[in-house]
Nucleic acid binder design. Structure first.
Lengths: 127, 127
DNA sequence: CCTAATCTTTCCAGCAGGGGGAAGGTCAAG
DNA sequence: CTTGACCTTCCCCCTGCTGGAAAGATTAGG
């Protein structure tokens, strides 16, 4: 299977699949005689796996770890859970920051009358 | 006032202040005879303004717009409100995505027993 | 006055996570 | 045989900085 087919099946741009090959995240099964990357079913599954993990916000390095656990039929589920829990904690921290930010900004937007007068609590708050 | 003093006062790294000067966001008032950047009180205020706006998650380009409004004593508060509202909408969209992500990931982590057996709903979900 | 430490400058390189596009090789259909 | 759709490598671009090297400026101490 050539790269565009694999990319389409996995739901990823061709550029991204090539990038994942370059950084050694998901390597093609081999190369054709003319140098084309060749993907098999296993590679396809890994590409899809990475796409979904990325959609979950896992970083490339986290994907690398998850992928090695995914391929290791003898791994313990606690290893996976550790990575996922850490990521979950990061997400929740980000949520807290975002919520605080939103509240403060929403207050400013609400307070600002948004008319043609120069008085503006938003700028007052920033300046 | 030389760059390290201005940076310290504004609460920014020197590198960042230099970067802001390079991209024309906050230019120094002038240069000393030996080529050192010189900042005055107005520049200091702008650096602090940008730092706070960045903490609010405004992009550099948004900061550029806010800064020009900040300097324009005749601007309408609605102009500022427009930028801030757009940014607020972005934040809220990000919050929704993050919440959905968190819920799904939290469910998986909760479901995963995290023992030494290979069964793992997290990997099942990704693979 | 000399020296060493601490500024400052410029430029170069790089991080994540790719995107865009050029220059050139390949392959199947008509 | 030609056309068009692939594929390859290559390098630059993005955001928002951060680090480092090399070289000049200033300042404190002896």
């Amino acid at each position: 299977m050539k790269i565009s087919h694999a990319a389409r099946q996995a739901g990823l741009p061709v550029k991204t699949v090539r990038y994942y090959a370059d950084i050694g995240l998901v390597k093609p099964a081999g190369r054709s005689m003319s140098g084309y990357r060749e993907y098999d079913e296993a590679g396809l599954a890994k590409l899809g796996f990475v796409r979904r993990a990325r959609e979950f916000g896992f970083s490339i390095e986290e994907c690398r770890e998850l992928l090695s656990l995914y391929e290791d039929r003898d791994r313990a589920s606690s290893d996976v859970r550790t990575i996922a829990s850490a990521h979950l904690a990061e997400i929740e921290e980000k949520q807290r920051q975002l919520a605080a930010l939103r509240d403060e900004l929403a207050y400013l937007v609400k307070t600002c009358q948004g008319n043609d007068r120069p008085d503006c609590p938003i700028l007052d708050r920033l300046g």
